[in-house]
Structure formats: C-alpha cells, structure tokens
Simulated assay, not measured.
Amino acid sequence: MDRSPALLLLLALGLCCPGIHGQSLEMKVRSPKDITQLRVGQRLELECQTDKNSGAFWIHQDKSGTLHFIVFISSVSWTTFSRDQRTSPRFEASKHNSIYLLVVKSFTPQDEGNYFCMMNFNQMLFFSPGQPAFLPGTAVPGGPSLFSIPADRRMQEDLEYFCLIFLWVPLAGLCLLLLQLLANTIVLCRHKAHHNPL
C-alpha cells in the first residue's frame, strides 16, 4: 500500500503529452460570416464543432508560422486565456452544446493568419483543419502550415505550457493529496498499534 502513490505518479508521468497528432477528430472550424470581406475593427467569430466533450484549445498561427495559444475552453464552459487570464481584452470564448466559439473582438493586422482548434483526447493532441483569416489585399501565404513547419523553440514552449497548466499542476495537487492521505494512514495505524498491543 505504501507504494501506491509513487506508482500512480509514475503512471501519470508517462501519460503526459505522449504524442501530437495532426489529424482531425471529427472537428470542423468555420466562420459563420463571410470571412473573405474582413475589415480592420470588424468582429470575427469562429466556431469549432466536435463530437467529443473534453474541452478545446484555440491556437493562432501568424503569417510567419509562429503558433500562439489563445484560450482553453473546458467542457463546462470555463475559459483560461493566455498566461492564466480569465478574460482577454482581444478575445471572447464560450461553449454552446458541441460548439466551441472564439471571437476576435476587433480584427487587426496582427490577428491575420490561420486559426486552429485543438483537443486533448485519450492523452493525444488532435488539431482541426485551419481557418484562414486575412484582410483583403493581403497575400495569403502559401508557406508553412501547422503541420509542415519545423517544431521550433516557440512551439515547444507552447506545448510545455499546455502540459504545465492543464496536466502537471492538477497532477501535482493530486499527488500531494495522495501523499498526505498516506501519511495520515501511517500515523493512524501506528497510533492504533501503540494503543492496542497484541
């Protein structure tokens, strides 16, 4: 029994972020409005529809190919924006039934690029097809897509951040709780054995 928390910890460590899969999981990303006529200052709404209810991430790939984490929307509609913010001055996010909604409040040139929905399902990361969003007259880059760019340092940092916030922090809390329960059990057993000698 005294090995159970350590065993659980080792099993959980082996499950964290084992793979990234560039395939869809019945995930569709679309814009309800005509995205080809974007203007500066316009409100842009993007929908990610999926058949799984395990929460979804929204990621922006800018024109240089760099990935930016925007928000995580949980299965119960809680939102966590970049760097642990509950709200964002630039974005809104919500969940309605099986649709995870991302809103760019006021579109700017820095918001141009491709938008992806990502899910962590069965300990694997799945990406949706991208939704391009560019201002008229802007050449849509035919260069790197999400799965053809090299796994550069920025992408690695973003993935490590996902693991830290959504997997490691809750896991660490659970392990501390298990260790506390184990310590309490040992103390109670010794106390009982001390007061009830054979």
Results as ranks from 00 to 15, higher is better:
Gln23Cys: 08
Ser128Thr: 09
Pro5Asp: 02
Ser64Ala: 14
Leu8Phe: 12
Leu10Met: 02
Val40Met: 04
Gln110Leu: 15
Gly173His: 08
Phe69Tyr: 14
Gly19His: 03
Phe69Lys: 05
Ser74Val: 03
Gly22Tyr: 15
Ile165Val: 15
Gln37Ile: 13
Tyr115Gly: 01
Thr50Leu: 05
His191Val: 10
Tyr161Thr: 14
Leu179Cys: 15
Gln85Ser: 12
Asp84Lys: 13
Ala139Val: 12
Ala93Ile: 00
Pro197Glu: 00
Gly65Leu: 04
Leu7Ser: 11
Pro132Gln: 06
Ala139Pro: 01
Asp152Glu: 10
Arg86Cys: 01
Asn196Trp: 12
Pro32Val: 07
Arg3Phe: 07
Ser31Pro: 06
Glu157Met: 09
Arg83Cys: 04
Pro129Phe: 01
His96Pro: 03
Met124Lys: 14
Gly143Lys: 02
Arg90Ala: 12
Cys175Ile: 12
Leu9Phe: 05
Asp111Val: 05
Leu7Cys: 06
Pro132Trp: 05
Ala172Ser: 08
Leu164Arg: 14
Arg90Trp: 11
Thr50Ser: 14
Val169Cys: 04
Val104Lys: 03
Gly55Asn: 04
Ala172Thr: 13
Ile149Phe: 15
Val40Ala: 10
Tyr100Phe: 14
Leu15Ser: 15
Leu174Pro: 00
Phe81Trp: 00
Leu174Ser: 12
Leu44Gly: 00
Ser24Asp: 12
Gln156Lys: 11
Thr87Gln: 05
Val187Asn: 09
Leu25Ala: 01
Ile149Tyr: 13
Asn196Leu: 13
Asn114Ile: 06
Leu8Pro: 02
Leu125Thr: 13
Phe127Pro: 01
Asn120Val: 07
Ile186Ser: 08
Leu176Asp: 05
Cys16Trp: 10
Ala139Trp: 04
Arg39Glu: 12
Lys63Val: 07
Ser24Gly: 13
Leu176Glu: 03
Val76Lys: 09
Ser88Asn: 11
Ser54His: 09
His68Lys: 09
Ile186Gly: 01
Gly41Ser: 07
Leu146Val: 15
Asn97Thr: 08
Leu25Glu: 07
Phe162Val: 09
Phe147Val: 06
Val103Phe: 01
Leu135Pro: 03
Glu112His: 02
Met1Leu: 12
Arg39Gln: 15
Gly41Tyr: 09
Phe57Gln: 05
Ile20Phe: 12
Lys63Asn: 00
Gln37Lys: 15
Val103Gln: 05
Asp111His: 11
Ala183Val: 10
Leu179Arg: 11
Ala12Trp: 03
